[in-house]
Amino acid sequence: MIIIVSLSMAFLECCLNNVSSDARVALGESDHDVRETFCLDRCGDCYDRSFLVVDGELRTGNSHMDLLESVDDQPKGYEE
């Protein structure tokens, strides 16, 4: 059973070095609260792949678009 306990938007943090120009626009146009920073101190992941910090938790993936979709599928408060 899946219970969605909250549908509030997520708090997303991304690194300036990790997002492409297109990803920056997509993140900006999303319904989520987005912060772009100089460095989130996730340099190893930043070097290797796309990542977001979603409500304080690291999520990695092949692209920010994929990550955004995963956030929409599993919003804050997601429980399984």
């Binding site: 997002v19 120009s21 297109d22 626009v25 772009e36």
Partner: peptide, 16 residues
């Protein structure tokens, strides 16, 4: 330029 800053002008805005 940083390699991830190659988009059109409106894509460059960084709010740090």
């Amino acid at each position: 330029a940083p390699s991830n800053q190659d988009g059109p002008e409106e894509h460059l805005k960084v709010s740090v």
